[in-house]
């Protein structure tokens, strides 16, 4: 119990330190661009592919349901709202956890085991500012953009099923969507994706950074353990936060 409280306190201080360092100079544009490339650009193919198929399957399932109620013209609204409210932010977050969050945690924990973080401390260079902040900033920029791409591609996938395959008129698909999706829905999507970005990068970096304080975690086995913990904890945190944000904002 004491260890859990201590660990939570450590995580809180880590977050505070990271956010404070993120908002104050000096910034490192070179490291930031590198991390945006790693988290954002290199996740694009996964996001485009999954967004396309998620949009297609949502349109397919809604088509089947809406036919029963004679409301097939609502397909555009259904696809749009599903993607903006829930599927876009949550699935993008889970994809980024699997592709980038795990890799970031593993990389930082290896830096810890190879004494690179100690070396920074000994060179009087703040490891949080040097190692963590570029990843924090990159995640806060990249994940919302990836979410937007996921949603747009999902809408294209839904269009293919509803309009091309089932013959719904193009006007009905997009008109239905623009009639039902309100500014508040987009706001909730933005809040969700920002909260998820923060949770993913916070948990992934902190788990790696504090590898040496995890009892029994050592060497490659320790890296594997904290990486698994980072993926599991950040996925659960995203799903919990999804409910909380929805409950507050709906």
């Amino acid at each position: 119990m004491t260890e859990t409280i201590r660990s939570l306190g450590r995580m809180g201080i880590f977050l505070g330190h990271s956010v404070a360092a993120m908002l104050t100079p000096p910034w490192r544009p070179r490291s930031l661009i590198k991390q945006i490339h790693f988290i954002g650009v290199r996740s694009l193919s996964v996001i485009i592919l999954s967004g396309l198929f998620v949009g297609m399957v949502v349109a397919l399932l809604f088509q089947d349901t809406l036919v029963r109620f004679g409301a097939t013209s609502m397909a555009g609204s259904a696809v749009g709202l599903s993607l903006i409210w829930e599927l876009g932010p949550v699935l993008t977050a889970l994809m980024v956890i699997g592709r980038a969050g795990s890799a970031i945690c593993a990389e930082i924990s290896i830096m810890r085991t190879e004494q690179q973080i100690d070396a920074l401390e000994c060179m009087a260079i703040d490891p949080i500012r040097h190692v963590i902040v570029p990843r924090f900033t990159a995640a806060m920029i990249s994940i919302p953009l990836l979410t937007a791409i996921f949603i747009v591609i999902g809408i294209v996938g839904g269009y293919f099923i509803s309009v091309v395959l089932f013959g719904l008129s193009e006007g009905a698909y997009f008109q239905g969507m623009s009639d039902t999706v309100l500014m508040g829905d987009l706001r909730m999507c933005l809040v969700k994706t920002l909260v998820f970005s923060l949770l993913i990068i916070w948990i992934s970096t902190a788990k790696g950074f504090y590898l040496h304080l995890v009892t029994g975690a050592y060497g490659s086995e320790g890296v594997s353990r904290v990486t698994t913990m980072a993926v599991v904890h950040s996925s659960i945190a995203v799903l919990c936060a999804d409910y909380l944000v929805s409950a507050i904002m709906l």
Binding site: K34, E114, Q115, A119, E121, C122, M123, A124
Partner: peptide, 26 residues
């Protein structure tokens, strides 16, 4: 610590930087 130098057992060089970039960092 700016007046102290530390050489670690395995070098503890940053794998994303070249040799000279590692040396220049401080």
């Amino acid at each position: 610590r700016k007046q102290i130098g530390v050489a670690f057992q395995g070098g503890a060089l940053f794998s994303s930087l070249s040799l000279i970039e590692n040396i220049e960092l401080p």
